[in-house]
Amino acid sequence: MILFTGFEPFGDRDSNPSMSIARQAASILEQQGIATIAAELPCVFATAPAMLEELLATWQPRVVISLGLAEGRGALGLEKVAINHLDARIADNAGNQPIDLPVLAGGPAAYFSGLPLKAALQALRDPSTELGDVEAEISYSAGTFVCNQVFYSLMHHAGRAPGLRAGFIHVPWMDPASPRIAIHARAVACVAQLALAGATEPRLGAGTEY
């Protein structure tokens, strides 16, 4: 079982590409005979982790990819690290704005993704495939908003669930009617398939200088 999560629309937006991509990625894998579900999380600090935990308990997936919107980015962000820190510059959909609080009191400072990020990056950059249309990068900051909270909560759960491969991907803003939704959905489905197959990481320099 593969679980994708996306977020509900945020603020005055009436759509969220993370959820559109999650649904289409799930459909792609279902058509290949892989049991997959896509679920929507609230963009609310107080309820998103609990809803994620409920989904994990119900479906007990082998692979989980949570998706979120990074409106200012142009590339698909394969997130490497979740930090135990919340610092909301703006309020969530319930009007809450936690500042300088931990995601989990007493928890580790950070968790690394359990997804094969460099294997995914290599596949997504391969010009011989249709996935070469996707601009992707490994990101070393998932922010300090609800996306990071969900990512950290997911990896905290994964640490207690042997065999579970999990992580987070940020998607750029795109219109719900954009053909880029389908392109990014194929990319996300590819990452999930690599994780399900137990892909290992190639020796590939993909870091940043700043």
Rank of each mutant, 00 (worst) to 15 (best):
R62T: 13
I169D: 02
S141P: 00
I2Q: 04
R186T: 01
L29E: 06
A199D: 11
A48T: 04
S153C: 08
L115H: 00
Q31R: 15
L131F: 03
Y140R: 15
V81G: 06
D133E: 14
Y210C: 08
S18K: 02
P162G: 10
T144L: 12
P61W: 09
T200N: 05
R180N: 04
V64D: 10
A142V: 06
L194S: 09
A94Y: 10
M1G: 05
Y152C: 07
A39H: 12
V63E: 07
I21M: 03
M1W: 05
F7A: 01
L69N: 00
R62N: 13
I34D: 05
Q122A: 14
S18P: 05
D12I: 08
T129V: 11
A57W: 02
T129I: 11
A166G: 04
H85V: 11
G6Q: 01
C147E: 07
G114S: 07
A46K: 07
N93V: 05
A110D: 03
P98L: 12
G159A: 14
A88S: 15
V81T: 15
I37C: 07
A142M: 14
A109M: 09
D12Q: 14
D92S: 05
P172L: 01
V103L: 13
G198Q: 05
G159Y: 06
L115K: 00
A192D: 03
A192P: 00
A185P: 00
A110H: 02
G74D: 12
G72F: 02
A22E: 10
L3C: 08
A75Q: 14
H85D: 06
F7W: 04
C190Q: 15
A88D: 14
S178I: 14
S15M: 04
V188S: 02
A195I: 10
L52N: 06
E79L: 10
L67F: 01
A158L: 09
I169N: 02
R203S: 10
L124M: 07
S141K: 03
P108N: 03
L121R: 06
A109C: 11
A39F: 05
E137I: 08
R203Y: 05
P179G: 09
S66R: 02
P102N: 06
A39E: 15
C147P: 06
G114F: 13
F45I: 07
L78M: 06
